[in-house]
Each structure stands twice: as structure tokens, then as C-alpha cells.
């Protein structure tokens, strides 16, 4: 059992947990993820290790409530425990001194981009960060990102905070104005990563993305997470999750992410019904739809 020692609501859909996991914290590096399973009947879902503290023996994860498991996760509180936590998984980011780099975090992708930006900064890079979301209330960790970036650009789709734009707009400008950008790191929804790569391809700047395909074991045993990179099938969980974005077949990734759309709906609807009043009440209070 893994205890939640700290819970923070970062926005109405995004929650952060600090989880006691001493041994994982000791090994975690930027770019690693872990798998959790809430309880006996639960599914295994992967989440990025957004921060880790060796001394406290904890890892921090930031997750967005999208379906049954993440909503259920969001109902847990400080002091509650998660039955299984497995990690650190995946290859960690390759960090060195590149020079000038841009880190792009979209939506909940702001969380996983943070430890990478920090590691890049610590390695002596000049870090420009762009974080974006649909609206102001979905932006979080601005202060944390500020601390590890030489320059921080914030965008929102609706203009409620920062620049009214999608992340690729300032990114394109940066690339146009600076021909010394050595590397781009982009994490966010697949569609965002796809367009980031389209943007950076024009400037021929190497772009690393972190792929979030559907996973089961996350140890290379099942192949659920398979994706196509440079014409070759790869397993995101062990060969990645980071890949050269210019070689990734994003359309395949997105198609595979939709594989269980019907089942996810069934599961979520059933969950909401079971929780009944509770979720509805919350929803009304927060004036929003669950997804």
C-alpha cells in the first residue's frame, strides 16, 4: 500500500498527489513514469513522475480527471492509500548541456515537462518554457516553471490568461527569431505534440516528445503500447516514452488511444451512477461537465 501524503487541487480537473514510495523516489529521474492500480478491481494506468523527493521518500504526480480511474483517483484524500505503485518505468530523459532549449507543456503536460526543464536548467542550458491550456483555471505550476526557466511564456486558447494562442504560435516565433535553439521538448495531448513537431520540422530543430499510448504491464511484455517511429514498431513503455517527434506516426498513436472509447464510456457512466449524488453535486457546484 502506498500512502498519499499530500493532495492539492491544481485546477478543477487537475490534481496533484505526493505519494510515499521511498524506493521509487530514490531511483526516479526526469522522464520516468510509474503505473498505479487503485484497488483490487482497478486497472493499471501510467502517470508521469512529475517530481520526486529522495529525502521525504515521495514521488509527486499530477493527473487530469478524464475517465473512471482518474476520477476515482481524485476522490482519494491525504492519508488514503493506493494498492499498487510500480516504477520508475521507461527510459529517463537524456539530459546534457545543449545550449538553448525550449520546453513546451500543454494541459496536464505541464507537470511532466517540469522535471525535464529543471534537469535541463541544472545542466546549464538556457531554458525557454511555453505552457498552455484551454483556459486560465487549467494552468498550474506557473511558479515552479518560472523558477527553472530563463523565460516563461503562457498561452490560453480563450485568452483568459497569458497570450490568447495555442502553444505553437509563440514556439514558431521563437524559432523564427532565434536560430540557436538546439532542442525542443514537448509534452501534452497527442494532437498538440503533432503540431509542435509540424512547427519545428520547418526549422529542422530536433524535437523530443513523450508518448502516452495505452499501457497494461508497462514492462515490455504485452505490446499494448506499440507505436510507429520511423516506420518501425516500438513499445512506448520500454523503448520510450520519449521519442524523436519528427519520426512518430501521431495519427496511429491517436487512433490507438481511441481503442476503448466505448468501454471507457460504459465504465465511467456506471461509476457516476454508483457514486450518484456525490459526483453530481460536485459537478453542479463547479459548473462544469465531468469530461
Amino acid at each position: 500500500m502506498f500512502k498519499i501524503v499530500k493532495k492539492e487541487e491544481l485546477s478543477e480537473l487537475v490534481t496533484s498527489f505526493e505519494i510515499e514510495a521511498k524506493d521509487i523516489a530514490k531511483k526516479a529521474k526526469a522522464g520516468n513514469f510509474f503505473v498505479l492500480k487503485i484497488h483490487e478491481e482497478g486497472e493499471r494506468i501510467p502517470l508521469t513522475i512529475a517530481d520526486f523527493d529522495t529525502e521525504r521518500g515521495t514521488i509527486t504526480t499530477v493527473f487530469q480527471k478524464v475517465g473512471k480511474t482518474t476520477h476515482h483517483l481524485g476522490t482519494l484524500n491525504e492519508g488514503d492509500s493506493i494498492s499498487d505503485v510500480i516504477g520508475p518505468l521507461g527510459r529517463h530523459s537524456h539530459i546534457e548541456k545543449f545550449g538553448k532549449v525550449v520546453c513546451v507543456g500543454g494541459g496536464v503536460g505541464i507537470a511532466p515537462i517540469y522535471p525535464i526543464a529543471r534537469a535541463l536548467k541544472e545542466a546549464g542550458n538556457a531554458v525557454i518554457s511555453i505552457i498552455g491550456a484551454r483556459a486560465k483555471n487549467l494552468i498550474f505550476w506557473e511558479d515552479k516553471m518560472q523558477r527553472v526557466s530563463d523565460e516563461l511564456i503562457i498561452t490560453t486558447d480563450d485568452g483568459s490568461y497569458g497570450r490568447k494562442a495555442v502553444v505553437t504560435v509563440p514556439l514558431d516565433e521563437l524559432l523564427r527569431e532565434n536560430n540557436d535553439i538546439q532542442l525542443i521538448y514537448a509534452i501534452g495531448p497527442a494532437i498538440m505534440m503533432k503540431f509542435v513537431c509540424k512547427t519545428t520540422e520547418k526549422y529542422n530543430v530536433k524535437t523530443i516528445v513523450s508518448l502516452n499510448s495505452i499501457m497494461v504491464d508497462a514492462t515490455g511484455m504485452c505490446g499494448a503500447c506499440r507505436i510507429n517511429v520511423g516506420g518501425k514498431t516500438q513499445f512506448a513503455c520500454v523503448d520510450g516514452p520519449e521519442f524523436d517527434g519528427h519520426k512518430v506516426d501521431f495519427d496511429l498513436l491517436m487512433s490507438r488511444q481511441r481503442m476503448y472509447i466505448d468501454e471507457e464510456k460504459v465504465s465511467f457512466e456506471r461509476y457516476k451512477k454508483k457514486r450518484g449524488f456525490n459526483t453530481l453535486w460536485k459537478r453542479k457546484n463547479q459548473k462544469r461537465e465531468c469530461i
Partner: peptide, 29 residues
């Protein structure tokens, strides 16, 4: 890599370890 193609490992792991045959009682589809 089309949707609906499983390695036997994945198919069996979902069904056995994750008890997907009891979905939605169990969460794994």
C-alpha cells in the same frame, strides 16, 4: 497495429491477470 489486434500476451493478461472478462465490474477493458 490496427485497433483490435492483440498480442496473445496482451489479450490473456487483460483477461486473466486484470480479469477483463468481468468488465465493467473490473476496470480493465
Amino acid at each position: 497495429n490496427l485497433n483490435g489486434i492483440y498480442s496473445a500476451n496482451e489479450f490473456l493478461t487483460r483477461a486473466n491477470l486484470m480479469k477483463a472478462y468481468l468488465f465493467p465490474e473490473y476496470d480493465t477493458p
